[in-house]
Design a protein around this nucleic acid. Structure first.
Lengths: 136, 136
DNA sequence: ACTTTAATTCGTAATCATTCTTATTTTGAG
DNA sequence: CTCAAAATAAGAATGATTACGAATTAAAGT
């Protein structure tokens, strides 16, 4: 996924192209890791000193909504990363030091259909935390 | 796990017995589900109108520390429940309606040791969300 | 290019969970 | 009973997130 492709997708959905949005997308395309809202803000302020949290959050949630970003909660803060489109459903190892991730091409839900009969499964979360080889 | 057993465990670790602590434990023993700090506060205030959040959090964290409670983050809020001592490491289905849980006696980490060589795994989270048979 | 209109952003205030601080109270050992 | 350590109360502080009115801007049509 690159910035232009993402903006194209947004256009199809009726969202406008703004400098701030381009910049936000740019950050995610360049960094393959989970990023907190405040880091996005800090990064963007170098170009747009006036951006507000409202703009950051509104865009992050919107981008997550249209499946350009993925969101997760790390240590009480929401973090976002570019969605992986190369493969289907999967999970992540997440480095608690640098935020970089490694895809885990395995979903534990495959193993336990029968043990949840009677339950309406809506969602699940499987994340592995630790230090990546670089940070270790 | 019952209240007396828990208090006994605390005594062994050098923690004192207080009315507030008894009451907190009581709530967890009676409710087999994840509970947010504010719900604990509300419940306790019927008996101790003056309890502060400080007391709640201090105790919840302490009880988690000594493995009497388990903690997880649900929707940006920390939630706690009585630890399941009848079995070892396991995971949970969590009802998003009532907070009740069902133990999942299966850990996905067993399946992927080799794919994470070079990574220092510190922790993991596997939770299934949905509606339990009663709420469904 | 100009106008219109709705989307978007800015600036700031409000909210909510959690943590911190200080003074006071309680517990349990001796 | 006395005392020191532990625990609590009360409220302020913090930090992430959300909300909102006013101002700006993108883009679609004229």
């Amino acid at each position: 996924m690159n910035v232009e492709k993402a903006l194209q997708k947004l256009k199809e959905k009726g969202y406008k192209r703004t400098k701030q949005r381009e910049r936000i997308l740019d950050i995610f395309v360049k960094q393959d890791q989970y990023i907190a809202a405040k880091e996005i803000l800090r990064e963007i302020q170098t170009d747009f000193p006036g951006v507000s949290y409202d703009t950051i959050y509104r865009n992050l949630y919107m981008l997550t909504d249209v499946d350009i970003l993925e969101a997760t909660e790390l240590g009480g803060e929401k973090h976002f990363r570019l969605g992986c489109e190369t493969h289907g459903h999967h999970h992540h190892f997440i480095c608690t030091e640098c935020g970089k991730t490694k895809s885990i091409e395995f979903c534990p839900m495959e193993n336990l259909n029968e043990s949840l009969s009677g339950y309406d499964v809506e969602n699940h979360k499987f994340e592995i935390y630790g230090k990546c080889p670089q940070c270790n």
